[in-house]
Lab assay of single mutants.
Amino acid sequence: CETCDRYISGRVLEAGGKHYHPTCARCVRCHQMFTEGEEMYLTGSEVWHPICKQAAR
């Protein structure tokens, strides 16, 4: 997992080739988790909900 550096077994979320436990992938702006299939916007090592990234501009 990109966030906690632990092995992932079971469900995995992926953004930009990086992998996360579903509970570790959180938006840097709103701190909410991502749901399965939800779009993730990756900037460097930061993961955003698209609407949060747009609002931060």
Rank of each mutant, 00 (worst) to 15 (best):
C1R: 11
C1Y: 01
E2W: 07
E2Q: 12
E2S: 13
E2T: 13
E2P: 01
E2C: 14
T3R: 05
T3H: 03
T3K: 04
T3Q: 10
T3L: 11
T3Y: 09
C4A: 01
C4V: 01
C4R: 00
C4M: 02
C4G: 00
C4T: 00
C4I: 01
C4S: 00
D5T: 12
D5H: 14
R6S: 07
R6N: 06
R6H: 05
R6A: 07
R6K: 15
R6T: 05
Y7H: 15
Y7P: 14
Y7G: 08
Y7T: 12
Y7W: 03
Y7N: 14
I8G: 02
I8A: 02
I8P: 03
I8F: 03
I8Q: 03
I8R: 02
S9L: 07
S9A: 11
S9M: 04
S9P: 06
S9K: 11
G10F: 00
G10K: 03
G10T: 03
G10S: 03
G10C: 02
G10D: 05
G10I: 01
R11F: 05
R11C: 11
R11D: 13
R11V: 06
R11A: 09
R11N: 13
V12N: 14
V12M: 11
V12H: 12
V12P: 13
V12E: 12
V12D: 08
L13W: 04
L13G: 06
L13I: 13
L13T: 13
L13H: 05
L13S: 03
L13A: 09
E14M: 10
E14W: 05
E14N: 09
E14V: 06
E14L: 06
E14D: 06
A15R: 13
A15Y: 15
A15L: 15
A15W: 13
A15Q: 15
A15K: 15
A15G: 05
G16M: 10
G16K: 14
G16V: 01
G16A: 03
G16R: 08
G17K: 06
G17P: 05
G17M: 06
G17E: 12
G17Y: 00
G17D: 09
G17V: 02
G17I: 00
K18C: 04
K18G: 03
K18R: 05
K18H: 03
K18L: 05
H19R: 09
H19A: 12
H19D: 04
H19C: 14
H19Q: 11
Y20N: 04
Y20E: 02
Y20P: 08
Y20D: 00
Y20M: 06
Y20I: 05
Y20R: 04
H21E: 00
H21C: 11
H21Y: 01
H21M: 00
H21W: 00
H21I: 00
H21L: 01
H21T: 01
H21V: 00
H21Q: 00
P22W: 13
P22Q: 05
P22T: 08
P22C: 01
P22G: 02
P22I: 10
P22E: 06
P22F: 15
T23W: 09
T23V: 05
T23H: 09
T23N: 07
T23P: 05
T23K: 08
T23M: 12
T23C: 06
T23I: 03
C24H: 04
C24D: 04
C24A: 00
C24L: 01
C24M: 01
C24Q: 08
A25F: 13
A25S: 08
A25Q: 10
A25N: 14
A25M: 11
A25H: 12
R26V: 10
R26E: 09
R26Q: 14
R26K: 14
R26P: 13
C27D: 00
C27A: 02
C27W: 00
C27K: 02
C27H: 01
V28Q: 10
V28C: 09
V28L: 07
V28G: 08
V28P: 14
V28S: 11
V28Y: 04
V28R: 10
V28I: 14
V28T: 14
R29N: 07
R29D: 08
R29M: 06
C30K: 02
C30L: 01
C30M: 01
C30Y: 00
C30Q: 02
H31C: 09
H31R: 11
H31Y: 09
H31S: 13
H31D: 10
Q32G: 10
Q32R: 12
Q32P: 00
Q32S: 08
Q32M: 11
Q32A: 12
M33V: 09
M33E: 07
M33W: 12
M33A: 10
M33Q: 12
M33S: 15
F34K: 03
F34S: 04
F34D: 04
F34H: 00
F34M: 11
F34V: 07
F34L: 11
T35E: 11
T35Q: 10
T35N: 08
T35R: 14
T35A: 12
T35C: 08
E36P: 06
E36R: 08
E36S: 05
E36I: 05
E36T: 07
E36L: 06
G37I: 04
G37L: 08
G37Y: 10
G37F: 05
G37T: 10
G37W: 07
G37K: 15
G37N: 15
G37Q: 06
E38T: 06
E38W: 01
E38Y: 03
E38R: 04
E38V: 05
E38Q: 10
E39D: 13
E39I: 02
E39M: 03
E39G: 09
E39A: 07
E39F: 02
E39T: 06
M40T: 11
M40W: 15
M40D: 03
M40P: 15
M40L: 10
M40V: 07
Y41G: 11
Y41V: 13
Y41A: 10
Y41R: 14
Y41Q: 14
Y41S: 15
Y41F: 05
Y41E: 15
L42K: 12
L42V: 15
L42A: 13
L42M: 09
T43G: 11
T43R: 06
T43I: 07
T43L: 07
T43K: 10
T43A: 06
T43F: 08
G44C: 09
G44D: 15
G44H: 07
S45D: 12
S45T: 13
S45C: 09
S45F: 07
S45M: 12
S45E: 11
S45Y: 08
S45H: 03
S45N: 14
E46P: 02
E46T: 09
E46Q: 06
E46R: 05
E46K: 09
E46W: 05
V47T: 11
V47I: 10
V47P: 11
V47Q: 05
V47S: 07
V47E: 01
V47Y: 08
V47F: 10
W48A: 15
W48S: 13
W48E: 14
W48Y: 15
W48L: 13
W48G: 07
W48H: 13
W48I: 13
H49A: 00
H49P: 02
H49S: 01
H49F: 02
H49T: 01
H49G: 02
H49V: 00
H49K: 04
P50N: 04
P50G: 10
P50R: 10
P50A: 11
P50S: 11
P50I: 08
P50E: 10
I51D: 13
I51W: 09
I51C: 04
I51P: 05
I51S: 13
C52T: 00
C52G: 02
C52F: 01
C52H: 01
C52I: 00
C52V: 02
K53D: 13
K53I: 06
K53Q: 11
K53L: 08
K53A: 09
K53N: 13
K53Y: 09
K53M: 07
Q54D: 12
Q54V: 08
Q54L: 09
Q54R: 07
Q54T: 10
Q54N: 15
A55W: 04
A55G: 13
A55K: 10
A55R: 08
A55Q: 08
A55P: 11
A55N: 15
A56P: 06
A56D: 08
A56M: 10
A56L: 10
A56Q: 09
R57E: 15
R57W: 06
R57C: 09
